[in-house]
Computed example of a mutant assay.
Amino acid sequence: MITAAADDGPWLDEQAGRLVRPYTVSNGRTRPTADLDLLTHVTATGHPATGHPGPEHGRALKLARTPVTVAELAARLGLPVGVAKVVVSDLVETGLLLAEAPSFRHTPADPAVLRHVRNELRRRL
């Protein structure tokens, strides 16, 4: 059962769930204008918002008071990753969020890293 938070207002209903289709949040856009990876860290800049950002934009700003990845932000917003990327991209363009690409000591496809991940998963499962 989905429970509506106090600040969700008319966007969520306890029995019906989300009342607004996810792509309505992004005005039908499916591609972000900023280059964002799932592991990109975003942080609110603290600049005041101009205009009237949507509820998801406002929630994203609150969640990004401390650094958070795009993937985690999408999960916390309850939005598909593609829609969350568009929301984050909007906020980056307006200067309300700062996006920092992930940095790796090794390339993500480094065979040694992949073997280590495989071995750790086997050990834990």
Rank of each mutant, 00 (worst) to 15 (best):
P55A: 06
L39N: 10
E93H: 05
T30E: 13
S103T: 15
H41L: 13
V20Q: 12
H52D: 07
P102F: 02
R59K: 15
L121V: 15
E14V: 11
L114T: 09
T24Y: 00
P48S: 12
T66Q: 12
P48G: 03
T66R: 06
H116Q: 15
H57T: 09
H41C: 02
T30S: 13
P108N: 10
R122E: 15
P108L: 10
R115L: 15
G51Q: 05
A4K: 14
P80W: 01
L79R: 09
L79F: 03
S103A: 13
E93L: 08
G95E: 07
E120N: 07
K62F: 01
P48N: 08
V25K: 04
R115E: 13
N119K: 02
V92Q: 06
R118H: 14
T69P: 04
H41V: 07
T43A: 02
H41W: 01
G9E: 12
P102C: 02
L125P: 06
L98F: 00
H47Y: 01
R31N: 01
R105K: 07
G82C: 00
A5D: 12
V86C: 09
V87G: 02
A75C: 04
V83D: 08
A4V: 13
A44Q: 11
T50Q: 13
E14L: 10
G46I: 10
L114G: 01
R18E: 15
T50C: 03
T43P: 03
P111D: 11
V42I: 11
G46P: 15
V113R: 14
V88T: 13
P22E: 13
N27Y: 09
G51I: 03
V42A: 03
R105Y: 06
H116Y: 13
R59A: 14
V83F: 07
P53H: 04
L121G: 05
P48F: 05
L79S: 07
N119T: 11
A5R: 14
T94G: 02
E56S: 09
R115W: 11
A71N: 15
A6F: 14
P53L: 03
